[in-house]
Design a protein around this nucleic acid. Structure first.
Lengths: 147, 147
DNA sequence: GTATATGCAAATGTTTTGCAGCTGT
DNA sequence: ACAGCTGCAAAACATTTGCATATAC
């Protein structure tokens, strides 16, 4: 899997004469290994020696070619990053723990996803919005934070 | 409508011996007048003379008694605030313009909302999450930002 | 008179940027 | 040699906090 990610990242970066540098490779590895989106500080723990500015700049570069995506959870938590659906080929959404900031992934059933797509297409049309995607997150408390 | 909001805010604030001060009243008025969630800076434009710290502190106080709610749009935009569903009695979600930051409200059809509730109940159960709510936002471009 | 609310200014935390040096092609 | 990448340090930004004063009950 990670070879596909590296290969595709390399290809897309080259198009704008950018490089898949070691730092970018390590960022992709860390994101591919994690079962959920990571914060910059988690990424830096996983990649010793990576400067903060490099982390942010490289994530921005990878996001510009849609290899990674920024996940906005609740606004009290720092941003998280994940491999884009472009690359993972799997559509998913998130469960957000409002107590501890945990973010889990889930894949919606075809039934749920279909209903949402249909419903939102009508909503977008009614508001003259060009819909590029949607966000269907569960807000709540994770197992550890449930009393 | 605004009398109901003031009345309920007053009642809930009193419970913890806080007050519905003039600044808080003006914040509620501004939020009730707006057709979409407002940022702190928009609120301060609407309420001349309101100190930055007072805006944030009062929004936090009103959020603590669930009269207002923070809306996290995309993470590149500052937070927005709206009257809570507790108060408006209307469940809604948002359309987020990723180009200009605009946030519009929409009310889901009972059909869509029902499908989402059912689907997410199963998702939460499978992940041992206690679901408190959900977020079903359309990401796209508004009329003005669509080429 | 006591607790709460306010304004101002300073601190915080995350993210972004400037710049000089390093690296790959 | 040149474009792009890096680290370090400083800036920018929204948001929060400390403190002294003002206000409401």
């Amino acid at each position: 899997v990670i070879e596909r990610v590296h290969g595709e990242a390399d290809r897309r970066l080259r198009r704008t004469r950018q490089r898949l540098s070691p730092a970018r490779r390590r960022l992709l590895d860390a994101l591919a290994d994690a079962p959920h989106p990571l914060t910059v500080s988690e990424l830096r723990e996983a990649i010793p020696g990576l400067a903060q500015s490099s982390a942010y700049r490289n994530l921005a570069a990878l996001a510009a070619v849609r290899i990674v995506a920024r996940v906005s959870s609740t606004s009290e938590e720092p941003d998280r990053w994940e491999l884009s659906e472009d690359i993972t080929q799997r559509h998913h959404h998130h469960l957000l723990c409002t107590a501890c900031g945990l973010v889990l992934d889930y894949e919606p059933s075809p039934r749920l996803e279909g209903a949402v797509r249909n419903g939102l297409a009508a909503v977008a049309r009614a508001h003259r919005f060009t819909a590029d995607g949607h966000r269907l997150d569960v807000l709540g408390r994770c197992e550890r934070c449930t009393p």
